[in-house]
């Protein structure tokens, strides 16, 4: 019988890298919620297990959600690095919080299993998050991979720009990914030819590595800390070292990878249906 635990073990066997928790603080990959010995009735993959995603899972008779983020608005770190994010709220706070309580009750009442799969998925030699994002953008034809590496090696992030100015490129990303809250550093009219496409939180060290690439004009990422990589790119633009930075949002940059994850899961989970349910962009913006 396919239980939560059996599913986890099958993932561990198929992931292709030694299973590890690479985090010294915070949630590790594995079952965060639910009974590991309960049978899996179906699998939903999503960037983050929002209440709406959980409802959709229940409505389609799937009790197991595999996601990158945890359900209660925290990565569970007690001492987050460099004040970039919040320490996890203590149990007494979440226990008395009406939103957390409503979500916890929904999880319990519907016997849901929530399985986090993030670091081990990212440790694979082919970057599923990048591949998903490239497919969502239909940018395969623009890829400039180093041929000595696997096509979606995590370092193969360079692409020919789909549009020839920073502003048009940003609008192209918005249209393809159907998102609104895209934030840009740099001049809209700056010409762009070569792009680094990344996902998640961009750090200064990552940026420096990418800046060694010849003729790089723009970096695309999910989010940036506003006293780290964001002013770093402001300064790079002022210094004329790059044309710009486009932040498409954490969710938009990581969600297509959950589609890749669903496809990969279907290759070794055949007893139950596996569906990708995008959480969708959380934001809207003023006109």
């Amino acid at each position: 019988m396919l239980t939560g635990q059996v599913l986890l073990e099958r993932i561990q066997k198929n992931v292709g890298v030694p299973w590890q928790s690479q985090r010294s603080d915070g949630f590790s990959d594995g079952i965060l919620e639910g009974d590991a010995d309960a049978p899996v009735t179906g699998v939903v993959t999503s960037f983050t297990p929002t209440l709406e995603v959980l409802r959709r899972a229940v409505a389609t008779h799937k009790n197991t959600i595999i996601c990158r983020e945890a359900p209660f608005y925290s990565r569970g770190e007690r001492a987050p690095l460099f004040w970039r994010n919040s320490p996890g709220p203590p149990q007494e706070m979440t226990d008395s919080d009406p939103v957390c309580r409503a979500k916890q009750e929904f999880i319990t009442q519907n016997h849901l299993i929530i399985l986090r799969l993030s670091e081990n998925w990212d440790a694979r030699s082919s970057d599923g998050q990048l591949r998903g994002l490239v497919r969502a953008l239909a940018w395969e034809k623009f890829h400039l991979p180093n041929k000595n590496r696997q096509e979606y090696d995590p370092r193969n992030v360079y692409f020919q720009a789909s549009k020839n100015s920073l502003g048009l490129l940003a609008q192209d990303l918005m249209a393809k990914l159907k998102i609104h809250g895209v934030r840009v550093i740099g001049e809209a009219t700056s010409p762009v030819r070569k792009v680094a496409l990344t996902h998640g939180l961009l750090l200064v060290a990552d940026s420096e590595r990418m800046l060694r690439e010849q003729d790089l004009d723009v970096v695309i990422a999910g989010d940036a800390v506003e006293w780290e990589a964001a002013p770093y790119f402001q300064d790079l633009v002022t210094a004329g070292r790059i044309k710009g930075l486009i932040l498409i949002g954490q969710q938009a940059s990581e969600e297509p990878g959950s589609g890749e994850m669903a496809e990969w899961l279907r290759s070794f989970v055949t007893e139950v249906p596996v569906e990708w349910v995008p959480a969708g962009e959380p934001f809207w913006v003023l006109a």
Binding site: T48, T50, L51, E52, R55, E69, A70, Y73, S74, R75, R84, N85, S86, P98, V99, A102, K103, L201, G222, D223, V225, E226, W227, G249, Q250, Q251, P282, F283
Partner: peptide
């Protein structure tokens, strides 16, 4: 200057749970 897996997802769930709430996420 908040991470996107914190307040935006919290408010999104609050609204899904039926609460009348909103979030304004400003630049730092």
């Amino acid at each position: 200057e908040g991470r996107e897996w914190e307040a935006p997802e919290y408010i999104r769930d609050a609204i899904a749970a039926g609460e009348k709430k909103g979030l304004i996420q400003l630049p730092h």
